[in-house]
């Protein structure tokens, strides 16, 4: 990146890595254009297929390493839904597992050098979060009818406080998809930008480049952690919201 001003002080463009580019042709990006986002989403599908389909093709009683990881991911999400949302939540297991594995794999693929991180884009995470929000809200009304509104009516609070609490609950409910999506995109984007900034320093410091390179290594380790944790957080919040839809009474 920043080839045109090489060797001339700091030329740090930490946000360039997030740019969406058309991979074939230079024209404007249409909704159907094959972009780097398309490529890395496709690679995410490929990675998931390799892990969960090819890795489990032997259906071994004693699992191979790949199959072990696939089973662990399965058990992890299954247990999470069961613990947080209860047995009824397991209806949504394939959906939640899809979200989890997509976010997890995209986060990790984004950590490869020169790659593009689809989950660093608010458009992507907002869609994921809106999907969860709509699913949970519609299912809440479908399952509980008007009783779903009891979610906003805190019956354990004093009567006088309840209308005020209802407004707060309502606002917080509608803020959920926002925080849900910005948390993921923000975390991923910030880490990648920080690494890029350090990389920019390293380019300009000559012999002292060792310092930012060490920092990059440390931040990269942190980012590996963040990639896993944010996928986990996104999934467990989905379970929590689902639990609200299943059991709306406070």
């Amino acid at each position: 990146m920043a080839k045109e001003e090489a060797g001339n002080g700091f030329n740090i463009h930490p946000m360039d890595q997030f740019e969406i580019k058309s991979l074939f042709g230079d024209g404007p990006i249409h909704w159907y254009s094959f972009t780097n986002a398309t490529l890395w989403m496709g690679l995410a599908i490929l990675a998931v297929v390799l892990l969960l389909v090819v890795g489990t093709r032997k259906r071994a009683i004693i699992p191979t390493r790949m199959q072990s990881i696939a089973e662990m991911a399965y058990g992890f999400v299954y247990k999470m839904i069961e613990d947080v949302a209860g047995k009824e939540g397991l209806k949504f297991f394939p959906y939640i597992f899809t979200l989890f594995i997509f976010v997890l794999v995209s986060n990790f693929l984004g950590l490869l050098p020169m790659s593009f991180t689809t989950t660093s884009h608010i458009a992507v995470t907002a869609c994921l979060a809106m999907g969860v929000f709509l699913t949970v809200t519609i299912y809440g009304f479908y399952k509980n009818g008007m009783k779903f509104l009891g979610l906003f009516w805190v019956s354990s609070a004093p009567l006088a406080l309840r209308p005020i609490l209802a407004i707060i609950e309502l606002i917080s409910y509608f803020v959920r998809p926002v925080s849900h999506s910005i948390r993921l995109a923000g975390n991923v984007m910030a880490g990648h930008a920080v690494i890029k900034v350090f990389a920019g320093f390293a380019g300009a410091l000559g012999i002292w480049a060792a310092l930012p390179i060490i920092s990059i290594t440390a931040v990269y380790g942190l980012e590996v952690l963040v990639a896993g944790i944010q996928a986990y957080v996104f999934t467990i919040l989905t379970c929590v919201y689902l639990n609200d839809a299943l059991h709306p009474s406070h």
Binding site: I20, I29, H30, W31, Y32, S33, T35, A37, T38, M41, G42, A44, I45, V48, V49, L52, V53, P94, Y95, F97, T98, I101, F102, T118, H121, A123, V124, C127, L128, G131
Partner: peptide, 19 residues
Amino acid sequence: PNQIFWLFITLVVLYLILS
């Protein structure tokens, strides 16, 4: 639109493969 379109495709494909 581009991202959302491809994300939708990706999620549907993933969902079908997984489920």
